[in-house]
Each structure stands twice: as structure tokens, then as C-alpha cells.
Design a protein around this nucleic acid. Structure first.
Lengths: 149, 149
DNA sequence: CCTTACGTTTACGTAAGCGTAAAGCAGTCG
DNA sequence: CGACTGCTTTACGCTTACGTAAACGTAAGG
């Protein structure tokens, strides 16, 4: 019954909630990723739009292009349609899955590498601590402005 | 011992092996991600350079910017240095790790969503198969002006 | 010597993903 | 009746990550 009067949001509220700029939201609309209703000229966001934005941002965090994100989020609200279409969609899902699984492998390898680097850091620190008896003051904690050459 | 005469590669060979263009490799050198030796003007790639390129491409697959990749891969061959520097590095590693862990959450959620969509696809297919005896040709589907080309 | 194959540099082009004015409606508060 | 406030559109600008010529060097082979 109350399907017509759910809560709505303004663009500013959505932007605030999802920590993006108004420009970003409008851009997503420009490229067809979002299509909020209009009350006059103003955009009116409903729950669905927020969910979609959430999916978009998740895709963005994963490093997908807006184009890829577009194909992905559109998978979600694909109508049943005909069989060929469903087969095609399943195929596309498989492609995406393979991609994501490759990413997870990359990600886990990177995490392992980082853990390794960190371990070596701690070893080096221990070595420094052990040999630190000569220096005045054990704290030796400079601001360390040093970075890339 | 034989530390000076390891195998080397040309830019074309590396590009072929890693499936990137020459331009890409040169670009990575431009931005300081790679720094192969030179024999005259020609680039000479050693094993280390290839490993580095591997790391770069892994970062790229993960959706990192070249700038981020730069800080990440440079972590790997950071010299022991002083304590403050090591602490800084450990801190940076932690930042990266948090990022990667967020990505993995995003990734797993996306995979779960895709699995869900796929499941619904199969359900729809089953439904279509079941109801396929009625209409001639099985295509009783009027509306729903369709999607992908 | 000339071609072919491979390498080089310099430099402009481009697509994506927004940033950032500039300028204009629409409601509302005093 | 202004003056805000918050929204809108239009449109040029910027960065990243390369693509894409253009023009030239160098070594091998016919």
C-alpha cells in the first residue's frame, strides 16, 4: 500500500551520507549509472537509488571503470527476459567472477608480501635496538622525514 | 661468482612476456617505476626488473594508481635505514593492509552478489523451460523492450 | 650500399572521472 | 520585497595512463 510514499532524499543528503560530491552523483547520472526521479528539476532519491550508488562505489573501490561498473550493476536488475539473454548474462557473470578471483589472488599475494616486508622491518628494528646501547638516549625516535629519492 | 652475467632481456621480449606494450614499459620508466640499465641507449632488463614489472602489473590489476603502486613496490626494497624510517614504513604497510582488506570485503560481497544473480538466472531458465510448451516457438514474451545488443 | 628490424626520443592526442566556475530558477525567511 | 539557501545546467579545465605518430640511430644481412 505505502509503496508510493517511501522516504526520499535530496542530492545533498545522499552526497553527505555516501561521502561523495554532488558533482560525482550528477556525473553518475550523466553516464546513466543513476537515474533518480525529478520533482520539477530537482532530483529525488529513493532507497533503490541509494542501493545502486552503494554498488557503484563498491565497484569503484575495487578499481573498476565506470563502464565496467555499469555492466555489473545492470546485471542486478536485469529482467528475466528470454533464455538467450539469460545465458548471456550467466556468461558475463562468469567473466566477472574470473576477474574477481584473479584479483583476490593478487590481493592475497600482496598482503602476504606486505606481511613479509613488515616482518623484516621488525627484525631490523630488533637489530637496531640490540645495537642501540652506544647511542645517547634509547628513544632515538627522530621525526624521520625521509622518503623517496 | 657469476653475479655479473645473468640473463638479460630486451624491451620487446619483456613486453611480449608480460603482455604489455613497449610504450607502457617506457612509461613506467618515465614515472620512475622501472629503471633498467642501458647498453648505450638501449634498455637492458635483468631479472629484478622483471620482478618489479610483475609487482607493478599486479598492483595495476588491483586497481591501484601508478602513484600508489610506486609507494607499494618501493616498500619492498627499502633499505633498513633508521628506526624512525622503519616505523614509518610499518605504518604505511598498515595503511595499505587496511585498504586491501577493505577491498577483499568488497570483492567477496560482489562475488556473493554475482552468485545470487546467477542463481536467479538459473531459476528463471528453469521456469522458462517448464513453461516452454505453450506458445509456438516459446516466445510469448511481448513487452520488456530488451537489453544488450 | 640499402633494406629490414629493432631500438630510441619528443611530443601531441585521448578517454575517464571528476573539479570548478558561472549563471540562473525556486522556495522561504524576515 | 529582497536576500538567502539550495538546487539546477552548461561548459571548460585538469590528471592519469597510456596511444600514436614522427623522426632518427644502429647492427645484421643480402
Amino acid at each position: 500500500m505505502t509503496t508510493g510514499d517511501e522516504r526520499t532524499w535530496t542530492i545533498a543528503e545522499v552526497a553527505e551520507d555516501y561521502d561523495v560530491t554532488l558533482r560525482t552523483i550528477r556525473h553518475y547520472e550523466d553516464v546513466g549509472l543513476l537515474s533518480p526521479e525529478r520533482r520539477g528539476t530537482a532530483r529525488v532519491f529513493r532507497k533503490r537509488d541509494r542501493v545502486r550508488l552503494g554498488l557503484i562505489l563498491r565497484g569503484r573501490r575495487l578499481g573498476f571503470s565506470l563502464d565496467e561498473i555499469s555492466t555489473i550493476v545492470n546485471m542486478y536488475d536485469e529482467q528475466p527476459g528470454e533464455a538467450g539473454q539469460l545465458h548471456y548474462l550467466i556468461e558475463q557473470i562468469d567473466v566477472r567472477r574470473r576477474d574477481l578471483e584473479q584479483r583476490r589472488r593478487d590481493l592475497d599475494e600482496t598482503l602476504a608480501d606486505l606481511a613479509d616486508v613488515e616482518r623484516r622491518c621488525h627484525e631490523d628494528l630488533a637489530r637496531l635496538d640490540g645495537a642501540a646501547s652506544g647511542a645517547a638516549g634509547g628513544r632515538a625516535d627522530g621525526p624521520a622525514p625521509r622518503r623517496r629519492p
